[in-house]
Write a protein that binds this DNA or RNA. Structure first.
Lengths: 171, 171
DNA sequence: GTAGCGCCTGATACACTGTAACATCGTTAC
DNA sequence: GTAACGATGTTACAGTGTATCAGGCGCTAC
């Protein structure tokens, strides 16, 4: 299918200076820990490992990629286990699923859900960035209201070229 | 060719048993015929059958569903052929792929691409409706500009309850 | 204690989604 | 004719995701 397996293409976009998640993984884990504590949820070993894998890479990872990364010689983790952990993590807003890529990325914001989330997927380097826009949210709601549609969840994914790649191409 | 105003675009629920898409399907085929003629593209038997299957149903269909439907006792159509036909049809704006469902629906508008397309997926009846909103498009572009991101394609899919189902539930 | 209960995980199997690679066939261009 | 090209057929396979059953582990109730 699509090759996001070996992470070479351009790991510079996500984790760059203008994105504020340089030390993401640690921050991410701490946030998850706190959140699970607050909600009385179990932040188990497996869930921890899956989140760490996703957060450490920063690039979108497929479930099988994750399974491979968190498997050790003596301890093989089956994809099905990864899926369950990912379900848990997405339900609690710690990772997001990128529908157009069948892949998962850590949530870099501390928003709940439904905050006008926009994913920007770079065709060149494969990075995925995330931003929010209440204005977009409002505009979508307005449009949906005209159609008599009650929205429960929205996904907005944009493909193109990220700022870093555009700058690199221009120079 | 859509004579309805965009404001009421989603007023009816696509894909209900009670309403037939024979008319839509015919219109769709005619439009496809015309479009391929204009662009000098081959509207082959297979492509015709695939489009007819998608248009006739109105509900989102998976590639394997389509393969099954257009297969006849003597003539089995492999999914891979369906995928190729679907590639052709999506490239030419005749069908859309719903990323969150891995399924395909006919394009009910006569827009090109990139017209602020919004898909509304009903959790209850499974129908998918389509509308456009230049305002959303504009707002997205504005937001992306702030991030220095150059958009090439966007997908916006909303899940919730369609007007028809809401009305039915209320009665 | 231990028996039950709920939740998480392991494991297997399987269905669905999508692509690669190569053969064939019909049409068009020369 | 034949070469080139595009569409389709065919097989094989990789990747995605779910169903199901079994075992483990902590917790509470008795």
């Amino acid at each position: 299918m699509d090759e996001r397996g070996s992470a070479e293409a351009g790991s510079e976009c996500r984790g760059h200076d203008h994105h504020h998640h340089g030390h993401d993984a640690e921050e991410m884990m701490a946030r998850a820990e706190r959140l699970c504590g607050e909600r009385g949820l179990q932040f188990t070993h497996l869930r921890r490992e899956v989140l760490r894998a996703v957060a450490a890479d920063g690039r979108p990872l497929g479930a099988y990629d994750i399974a491979e990364r968190i498997s050790a010689p003596g301890r093989r983790v089956a994809p099905v286990s990864v899926y369950r952990a990912l379900d848990f993590l997405t339900e609690n807003g710690l990772v997001h699923r990128i529908a157009t890529r069948n892949a998962f990325v850590p949530c870099v914001h501390d928003h709940g859900d439904g905050a006008g989330l926009v994913f920007m997927i770079c065709r060149n380097c494969g990075s995925i960035d995330e931003t929010t826009s209440p204005e977009i949210e409002r505009q979508i709601d307005r449009t949906l209201a005209l159609s008599g549609f009650k929205a429960r969840s929205r996904i907005l994914e944009v493909e193109g070229e990220c700022g870093a790649c555009t700058a690199r191409a221009a120079s």
